[in-house]
């Protein structure tokens, strides 16, 4: 595994924004659009990038990553679409309940961990549910360059098919939608079969779908370089634990419902991060001493790293045991 990116600032540069539109799309999903109060152009982004949204929720700061789904060629707005997760940690509920047009908010500069491979001859997008969002930007980007793409989009029902109608009417020959409640499913094997050389597949959706696509493609002889996926992990609750941060010279408590990264931030420690979902590698932290078990949940470290107990990704991983000392 390559070393973590060198920039160890906490998070990407920030951008002050104003909420310019709140557009409910269906029972669960709402689109939020942002403009800059100074009217300046947004930094350009490539399709597949995400931004981390800072939410001030009654004294608590929530930082959630969302894929940018607006057209990358339009520098006047950024847009995200947020699915309300009633069982989640509260970030999406905050967005749905508290965020109003005109609110001032803070986003980070976009970071792309799920970019198009523009060497590809053809791009096949596989979306599950809210996993449609990065593909909205990818489709816009490819349409600009007359790129060869098709979308296969699985949603629960017509009523929850976020953007399904819009996509189908714009691109009737390229968009295929499958509704779970009508027992429709993506025919992955047939889909992989017969694609021209140089085709890339991109999948964004639940973990089971991502694993299914990787496994099936490998069985069909697809090079792993041609199969791309993005899954942000949300930090999972766990037993509270204590951590000593030796550089900062403090000992902190990580609560049941916060991540180690969040606990560090709460205590004023400037810890690096970009994705907050175990994917980017930015938060990688050296372990100085540990007596107990790590609960590694990231996609960044490899199995050997996980086994040796010398590193931890504080955005999603936890610890159960007596002593944990980190080099932070």
């Amino acid at each position: 595994m390559t070393a973590a990116p060198q920039n160890t600032k906490a998070g990407a540069e920030k951008i002050a924004v104003t909420v310019s539109a709140v557009v409910p799309l269906n029972d669960l999903v709402t689109r939020f659009e942002f403009t800059r109060p100074d009217g300046a152009a947004f930094p350009p982004f490539s399709a597949g990038a995400h931004t981390v949204v800072e939410m001030r929720d009654q004294g608590r700061t929530r930082l959630n990553p969302y894929s940018l789904m607006s057209d990358p060629s339009d520098p006047s707005i950024y847009a995200i679409s947020v699915r309300r997760d009633d069982q989640g940690r509260g970030g999406s509920l905050f967005m749905h309940r508290n965020v109003k047009v005109g609110d001032a908010m803070t986003l980070t500069y976009p970071v792309n961990l799920f970019s198009l491979d523009l060497r590809g001859r053809k791009h096949v997008f596989l979306a599950g549910g809210i996993g449609i969002t990065p593909f909205m930007a990818m489709i816009a980007q490819l349409e600009q360059s007359n790129g060869n793409w098709e979308l296969h989009y699985a949603c629960r029902s017509e009523a929850l098919g976020t953007y399904a109608d819009q996509l189908r009417s714009h691109y009737p020959n390229k968009v295929h939608v499958y509704f779970d409640d009508q027992n429709q499913a993506i025919g992955l094997e047939d889909l992989l079969d017969g694609q021209p050389l140089g085709t890339h597949v991109y999948v964004c959706g639940p973990k089971g779908m991502i694993d299914w696509v990787h496994t099936t493609a490998a069985e069909h002889g697809w090079p792993s370089e041609n199969v791309h996926s993005e899954e942000f992990l949300a930090p999972q609750p766990g037993k509270p634990f204590e951590v000593r941060l030796c550089k900062s010279d403090i000992t902190i408590q990580v609560g049941e419902h916060e991540s180690l990264l969040e606990a560090m931030e709460r205590c004023g420690v400037d810890a690096p991060f970009l994705c907050r979902g175990g994917a980017c590698g930015q938060c990688e932290t050296d372990v100085v001493e540990a007596d107990g078990e790590f609960v590694h949940r990231d996609h960044w470290l490899d199995d050997d790293d996980h086994a040796c107990g010398k590193k931890i990704m504080p955005c999603v991983s936890r610890f159960v045991g007596k002593t944990l000392v980190l080099d932070r």
Partner: peptide, 10 residues
Amino acid sequence: VLSDAHMGLQ
């Protein structure tokens, strides 16, 4: 052969 080939070719 390559121009007629599909993904999965080894």
